[in-house]
């Protein structure tokens, strides 16, 4: 379940990153419209909150939020530091993370 939280948060950060014009070209080779960006922004926010839900399910209300903040920081830093070197790989990993998250949540 904690792993699911980490995956959700990573995908959420990626969606928020994709919502920013300056990151769209290196990641997608094109710029997205205003609507698509807004959709990505809210989708990213929802994913981050789903991550909180998964962390709270895994660890309860007293430790869950702490674990969520840890997930936010670690996945965010991992994303930022690898993004300029391997943008496409980051994008693929975010897709994989999103696909894996429900499986991991169901498994554990």
């Amino acid at each position: 379940m904690m792993l699911a939280a980490l995956m959700l948060v990573y995908a959420g950060w990626m969606a928020l990153c994709l919502a920013m014009t300056r990151h769209q070209r290196p990641l997608l080779q094109r710029e997205l419209g205003r609507r698509a960006s807004a959709l990505l922004r809210s989708g990213g926010g929802v994913l981050l909150l789903l991550g909180l839900g998964a962390a709270v399910c895994a660890q309860g209300w007293h430790i869950g939020p702490v674990a969520w903040v840890a997930c936010l920081a670690v996945s965010g830093i991992a994303l930022v530091l690898t993004l300029p070197y391997r943008p496409r790989a980051c994008l693929r990993f975010a897709g994989l993370a999103l696909a894996l998250a429900p499986l991991l949540a169901a498994w554990a």
Partner: peptide, 29 residues
């Protein structure tokens, strides 16, 4: 600059990106 890290830029700029990005992401911790 939330997700910004430009390792190709000048050395102080790239390291400042590292400093800022990790600092902001790890700020709650």
């Amino acid at each position: 600059d939330f997700f910004t890290f430009r390792p190709g830029k000048s050395k102080p700029r790239a390291w400042l990106d590292v400093h800022n990005a990790t600092g902001v992401m790890a700020l709650p911790f």
